[in-house]
Structures are given as structure tokens and as C-alpha cells.
């Protein structure tokens, strides 16, 4: 069991209005893998993530990260992980460098802000404010802030929503680069191509429950095994392939 970094068992969330957003979710995340939580809007992905991160009270069930019970010591958990929120924005009137220094202090850590900016390819924006960044740059900066405390795992909530194809691909390679350095990545997305490219394993959620959990390849094989036939014959290329071929892979921000 030692190779499981995150363990979640029978996690449940009932909001004060009585709405049950998460209805008993269990899964484990291996050290060093990219784990995806997929599902339509309102499936309970974000709520599940926020309970594991210690950002939202757990109604019942248990979540541990690196052996620490999240409900018992959320601050110790937050010290060890990096969290990127959905559509998070930053303090106004501060430069990226100042913001990273601030996060350094919030984690009582001492990362080199310039090094972090280099890692996400934003060193030439060090003196800019967050609001001057493009969508893709913002997300990359947001990921840089999650790396300040050299976390064991980072949580990315829909990191590529609203980005253009080039920026998405750029973010994918950033995620892969972070994973290669040994950081576990847990992300939510509703782009299946993204999950297929990035995730070692995925959990598919719907209406507050996990309805499938395996490697993307295994899930596809299971479906085909049930006798599934695509409605149209699979084209050897997609429209996105055309778009990328025509507009190039390089970033536009």
C-alpha cells in the first residue's frame, strides 16, 4: 500500500440545503501518476477534489494524503500539496514576482520565484501583473504558484478550460514535465482527448458517484468488449489535427 499517496474511502458531501453532491466515493492515487477525474458539469468533481484538499468540510468518509488525515489536519495537508483552483485569479496591483514571493511566505517556504517562472516559461513576464496575462499564461502562472512549496502532489481543477488548442497542448507538456520530476498530479477535466493524453488512470464521475475507474486504454477495451461500434467510422485525423497543422504548434500568447 506504500505506493499509494492519496487514499479516499466512502467520501460523502451533503450541503446545508440537503443536496448530496458526492455520494460515497472511494479511490486511491499512486505516487507519481497523473490521475484524472472526468465527468459532466455538476458531477461532483470539484467538490470531491476540494474535500481531499482540505478546502471543504467532509460530511462523512475519509481522505488521507501522504498518510495524513485531511479532516484532522487540513493545514498539514495544505503544506504538502499544491492547489490550482478553477478560474482562480490573483491580487491586483502586484507583479508575478511579488505574488510568488507572497506565496513563498504563505507556505513559509523559500523557492526561487525566478526559477519557478522559468519552469512555466514566464520569466519575461516577471514584472507584469496577473491581469495582463493571456488565458494560457494565467494558467501556467497559476500552476507555478502550486509548485512554490515543492509539493508531493498538485491538484488541477479544469486547467485547460477556455484555452485555445495551442495553449492546451502547451499546458499538457507542462503537466507531463512536472509529473516526470516525480510530482503526483490529480486533475479534473471534461475533455476526453486531454484525459487520454495525460492520465495514467481516470475515474469517471456522474451524479456524485464514480461509475468507472481504470486506465484509459482498459476503459476503451472494456467498451469495445461490450460490442460497442462507433456511429461513424473513425477518421484517421480530426478537425483539431487540421487546425494544429494549419496554425502551427507554437504558442500564441
Amino acid at each position: 500500500m506504500a505506493d499509494y499517496l492519496i487514499e479516499v474511502s466512502d467520501l460523502r458531501k451533503v450541503y446545508s440545503g440537503g443536496f448530496e453532491a458526492v455520494k460515497g466515493v472511494s479511490f486511491s492515487v499512486k505516487k507519481g501518476e497523473v490521475f484524472g477525474i472526468l465527468g459532466p458539469n455538476g458531477a461532483g468533481k470539484t467538490t470531491t477534489l476540494e474535500m481531499i484538499e482540505g478546502m471543504r468540510p467532509i460530511t462523512s468518509g475519509k481522505a488521507t494524503i501522504d498518510g495524513i488525515d485531511v479532516a484532522k489536519d487540513p493545514y498539514a495537508v495544505k503544506q504538502r500539496i499544491g492547489i490550482q483552483l478553477q478560474a482562480s485569479s490573483f491580487f491586483p496591483n502586484l507583479t508575478l514576482l511579488e505574488l510568488l514571493k507572497l506565496f513563498n511566505d504563505l507556505y513559509a517556504d523559500s523557492s526561487d520565484p525566478m526559477e519557478l517562472l522559468k519552469e512555466v516559461d514566464l520569466e519575461d513576464k516577471a514584472k507584469s501583473e496577473a491581469k495582463q496575462l493571456s488565458g494560457g499564461q494565467k494558467q501556467r502562472f497559476s500552476i507555478a504558484t502550486t509548485l512554490v512549496n515543492k509539493p508531493v502532489a498538485i491538484f488541477l481543477d479544469e486547467p485547460t478550460t477556455g484555452l485555445d488548442p495551442q495553449a492546451r497542448r502547451n499546458l499538457w507538456s507542462l503537466v507531463q514535465q512536472i509529473q516526470k520530476k516525480g510530482t503526483t498530479v490529480i486533475l479534473t477535466t471534461h475533455y476526453m482527448d486531454e484525459a487520454q493524453v495525460l492520465c495514467h488512470r481516470v475515474a469517471i464521475m456522474d451524479e456524485g458517484k464514480i461509475i468507472a475507474l481504470d486506465t484509459p486504454k482498459a476503459l476503451i477495451n472494456q467498451l469495445l468488449g461490450r460490442g460497442f461500434k462507433p456511429k461513424t467510422t473513425v477518421a484517421p485525423a480530426t478537425l483539431e489535427d487540421v487546425f494544429i497543422d494549419l496554425t502551427g504548434k507554437e504558442l500564441r500568447d
Binding site: 478546502m55 495544505k78 482562480s88 485569479s89 507556505y107
Partner: peptide
């Protein structure tokens, strides 16, 4: 803007 949430995501 979610900045307060972002602080909540840190140990502070």
C-alpha cells in the same frame, strides 16, 4: 475573483 479561496488553499 477567488483570491480569498486561493489563500485558503495555502497553510495560512
Amino acid at each position: 475573483t477567488g483570491m480569498l479561496r486561493r489563500i485558503q488553499a495555502t497553510p495560512t
